[in-house]
């Protein structure tokens, strides 16, 4: 494998359609962990994570998500027959998209996300997030990436396709009044 310099983006923005070298800043390596250059197929490891019960509880709480398989260990194992509490599919998608945005060498806005949950991921599993460029627009203003999460046995638990646009202007403002809630934390 070939290591990348600290702070170097894992995935390079494509100049335009047909830029097959994009995402492949130092092709030819074998990508095993974040910081490795993408492999010969342009696949980069974007992040790794071992989910813990606390973050599953926080995600359930933040989104008022009462499905018990995400925080109730006895119910999950005794009633539903899973080995351990289950990582939310949407949480995996959130982390995949965040990892993609963080791995790119330009700021982007996420425009579409299509995801599928293929297998269970439970707390304690080592999850590896990977991604690669699929295609780019003719003018290089947008690109579509494939990202996916693998657990320790190599099975893909969640896959997603995200189309992102290179950010070139000021963000869209929130309410014109600029009012806030005044009650943060």
């Amino acid at each position: 494998m070939s290591a990348m310099r600290p702070g170097e983006a894992l995935l390079r923005w494509p100049a335009a359609a047909g830029d097959t070298a994009a995402g492949d800043t130092a092709a030819g390596g074998v990508s095993h962990e974040p910081g490795d250059a993408p492999d010969a197929d342009g696949v980069a490891v974007l992040a790794t994570r071992t989910y813990q019960p606390l973050e599953l509880f926080l995600f359930s709480a933040a989104g008022w998500h009462p499905h018990r398989i995400h925080y109730d260990q006895p119910y999950t194992t005794d009633v539903e027959g899973h080995e351990a509490v289950v990582v939310h599919g949407p949480l995996q998608t959130v982390h995949l998209v965040d990892a993609l945005v963080g791995a790119l060498d330009v700021p982007v806005d996420v425009r579409t996300v299509a995801s599928r949950h293929l297998a269970l991921l439970t707390v304690g599993d080592v999850a590896v997030m990977k991604g690669r460029l699929r295609d780019a627009s003719d003018d290089g203003s947008s690109a579509t990436f494939e990202v996916w999460m693998e657990r320790g046995d190599g099975a893909r638990t969640t896959t997603a396709t995200a189309t992102v646009e290179r950010r070139s202007s000021s963000p869209v403002a929130g309410p014109a009044t600029g009012r806030g809630t005044g009650d943060a934390r």
């Binding site: 998608t93 959130v94 998209v97 965040d98 945005v101 403002a173 929130g174 806030g180």
Partner: peptide, 13 residues
């Protein structure tokens, strides 16, 4: 932005 802005995937919550 007018105030704190949500991450892209906030809609899932």
């Amino acid at each position: 932005y007018a105030d704190v802005v949500a991450p892209p995937m906030f809609y899932v919550s």
